[in-house]
């Protein structure tokens, strides 16, 4: 931070010494302005997308409040009116189950990478492949689960949850390892010095002190997973009534409903799509915001 200040003040002094309005200075100013412009340009789509979602979604959601969140999805898609209840339940159950699978595995995987593996060949390989795995297209994960799970057990919420878990796993691993790296080594040594075993040290000293960072990383992963559509298309099927059992029977989720309704030409269906989009964006933002609050509260405490 202090070097940053000195950088700026040197720049200032130099700017005072330099002959004014030289071509070089003008070119530099133009480039800096272009950079500022780039930063402005990216705000535009954000504002437009969120603006559309709110302006078109809020009307739908609040006209039928709260039945939009609770009613069944109309069987005929040309019907106007609520609701999205089954999709909201489905999203919560499927994302929740995916979290239950991916987070413990991801944290344990990261524990292996940082606490046991370190710089061994195997852990280097796993770390590298986990990074590569974050780039596997979500549709490939969906088809993968279709091939190994859905073909055998049929359409159900669990299939979708497993696909989402596969997408979350590398993200959780990367985020958790990043946080374990921040835990000071002398904490571990102090624990060993008291005669504590390595596993107890990890469970009672290392993980708790990295917990806020891990929680915030996992919340971000959940926020991303809740919005995934492609993995669900082949695995959960379609339902119009609440399906509370994710292990059996076709299910539905908000992203799948948005996709269906965005393709539809009926105004009623499109309306439901915007309402669902507002709900989904709201959920995703809520998780992101919580993640930020957790991590900044943690940073302040340190």
């Amino acid at each position: 931070m202090s070097t940053m200040m000195s950088d700026q003040s040197t720049a200032q002094v130099l700017e005072d010494l330099r002959p004014k309005r030289s071509w070089r200075q003008a070119r530099s100013n133009i480039m800096v302005m272009l950079m500022g412009l780039a930063a402005l340009v990216i705000v535009v789509p954000l504002v437009f997308v969120i603006g559309s979602v709110i302006s078109r979604g809020a009307g739908v959601v609040f006209r039928d409040f709260p039945s939009f969140f609770t009613k069944k999805i109309p069987i005929k898609s040309e019907d106007i009116g609520p609701g999205m209840g089954p999709a909201i339940v489905g999203t919560m159950l499927i994302t929740g189950f995916a979290t239950l699978v991916a987070v413990p595995l991801g944290i344990l995987g990261a524990v292996y990478l940082h606490e046991y593996g370190g710089t061994t060949k195997l852990s280097k390989l796993i770390r590298f492949l986990a990074t590569v795995m974050t780039g596997v297209p979500s549709i490939v994960m969906g088809l993968f689960i279709y091939v190994i799970f859905t073909l055998r057990f049929g359409l159900s919420g669990v299939g979708g949850a497993l696909a989402l878990a596969c997408l979350m796993l590398p993200v959780v691993i990367r985020a958790t390892e990043e946080m374990l790296r921040l835990v000071p080594g002398n904490l571990r040594e102090a624990s060993y010095a008291l005669g504590t075993s390595k596993s107890r040290t990890i469970l009672t000293v290392v993980l708790p002190s990295a917990l806020p960072g891990i929680v915030s990383g996992c919340l971000l992963a959940v926020a991303r997973a809740a919005g995934e559509t492609a993995p669900l298309l082949f695995t959960i099927g379609a339902a119009r009534a609440v399906q509370g059992n994710i292990f059996k029977g076709a299910n539905t989720a908000l992203p799948a409903q948005i996709f269906e309704n965005a393709k539809s030409l009926f105004p009623g269906a499109q309306e439901r799509g915007w309402g669902a989009a507002l709900t989904l964006v709201g959920i995703a933002f809520l998780f992101t915001l919580t993640a930020r609050i957790v991590s900044s509260a943690y940073q302040k405490r340190r």
């Binding site: 930063a39 990216i42 705000v43 789509p45 954000l46 437009f48 997308v49 969120i50 559309s52 979602v53 971000l220 926020a223 991303r224 809740a226 919005g227 995934e228 559509t229 992203p255 948005i258 996709f259 309704n261 965005a262 499109q270 799509g273 915007w274 989009a277 989904l280 964006v281 995703a284 933002f285 998780f287 992101t288 930020r292």
Partner: peptide, 24 residues
């Protein structure tokens, strides 16, 4: 604020971008 803008963009689901793209 710039980092927040990027965060928000990154967390908007792709299906919402798609819907905005086709309908707006």
């Amino acid at each position: 604020p710039m980092v927040y803008v990027m965060d928000l963009l990154a967390v908007i689901p792709s299906v919402v971008f798609g819907m905005w793209g086709v309908l707006v």
